Amino acid sequence: MQTRSLRSLVHVARIGSFAKTAEQLNMTLSALSMQIKALESELGVALFDRSVRPPRLTPIGRSIVNEAIPLLHREESLLEICRPTGSLVGRFRIGFVTTAAVRLLPAFVRNAQEKAPLAAFEFETGLSRVLQKKVANGQIDAAVVTDADGLPETLSGRIIREEPFVYAAREDFLGDGLSGLLQRQTFFHFMPDTGIGKLIAAEMAVHDRPRNARTVMLDNLEAIMECVTAGLGFTLLPEPDVQRYRSRAVKTLPSPEHLRRKLVLATVSDGILASRETALADLLGAGGLHD
């Protein structure tokens, strides 16, 4: 039995789509389907119920996936022993917090092609808390997350970037400075249960806004900045995100110096990437980018 087929099976189970899995694995859909059917033939069981769309794992299919995950991890650990210390060789699964992926992922891919030609990477995006759990339980090897509450004890974190926050509003709203915004304007708040949302919520709690002051919760940075550009209110976000989406009509005010978003590379403290954290951080920008 080839572990490549098991790896594809686990990938399909994690993503929930044959088409998306084939795309991420750089395979045709027919080649992936044939690979899974060959595995079913070798095992003598049906791994997927194909009477529904999309096909879903059968009970025995789920059991095989659960058994395959630790087996594949052991295979990776065996290969890890044979790799030169500090180098990145093999296949790695990396997560990026969604709000930072748009800025960090392109540079990571470019650097990986130049500096780690023997490594292959799979990517996913999500919320910091979800990505941390996936690193801790071995679903992904590392993740770039916002460190708002500290990492779990099983994970180690390396700061790769610190980003100051700024208030943003149309220039014609800033005649009375920050106090005018706080007293009279609608505040567009990035979701407070996220990493940067928690930092924003803590800062806004310091200010005494009127009881009837309006706050709108949104989970999309670009949508927030479009609302600010349209003159619907103001916001508080990491400066790089404001600069990326703002128009000429929008100006910024500084936030307190202590209010900074820390983007952290999270890995398992004693995991396969522990000795290669520096090499991985280097792909994110020389191991430490500070704004």
Rank of each mutant, 00 (worst) to 15 (best):
R4Y: 13
S5A: 14
L6M: 12
S8A: 15
V10I: 07
F18G: 05
Q24H: 05
N26H: 14
M27D: 10
L29I: 13
L29M: 09
A31M: 04
L32C: 10
M34L: 06
I36P: 05
E42S: 14
D49F: 03
D49Y: 03
I60S: 01
S63N: 07
L72I: 07
R74I: 13
E75W: 01
E76S: 05
E76A: 12
E80T: 05
C82V: 09
R83V: 08
R83E: 09
P84Q: 12
T85V: 14
G86R: 08
G86S: 06
S87Y: 04
L88E: 08
V89T: 04
G95K: 02
F96L: 11
V97L: 03
V102Q: 08
L104T: 09
V109M: 13
V109G: 01
Q113W: 12
E114D: 12
A116W: 14
F121M: 06
L127P: 01
V130N: 13
D141L: 01
A142C: 02
V145F: 06
V145N: 04
V145Y: 04
D147Q: 07
D147P: 02
A148R: 09
T154C: 05
R161Q: 15
A169I: 01
D172E: 11
F173I: 02
L174E: 08
D176L: 04
L178D: 04
L181H: 07
L182T: 03
R184A: 12
R184M: 04
F187N: 03
H189E: 14
F190T: 07
G195Q: 06
L199F: 08
L199I: 10
A201G: 03
A201P: 00
A202Q: 11
A205P: 00
A205Y: 02
V206F: 04
H207P: 03
R214E: 15
N220P: 08
I224N: 08
C227A: 13
V228T: 08
A230C: 10
F234R: 06
L236C: 14
D241C: 06
V242D: 06
V242S: 05
V242Y: 06
Q243K: 08
R246V: 04
S247W: 11
R248Q: 15
R248S: 15
R248V: 14
K251S: 14
L253C: 10
L259W: 01
R260H: 10
R261C: 13
T267W: 00
I272Y: 05
R276C: 09
R276V: 11
T278F: 01
L280P: 05
G288E: 03
H290R: 03
D291R: 00
D291F: 00
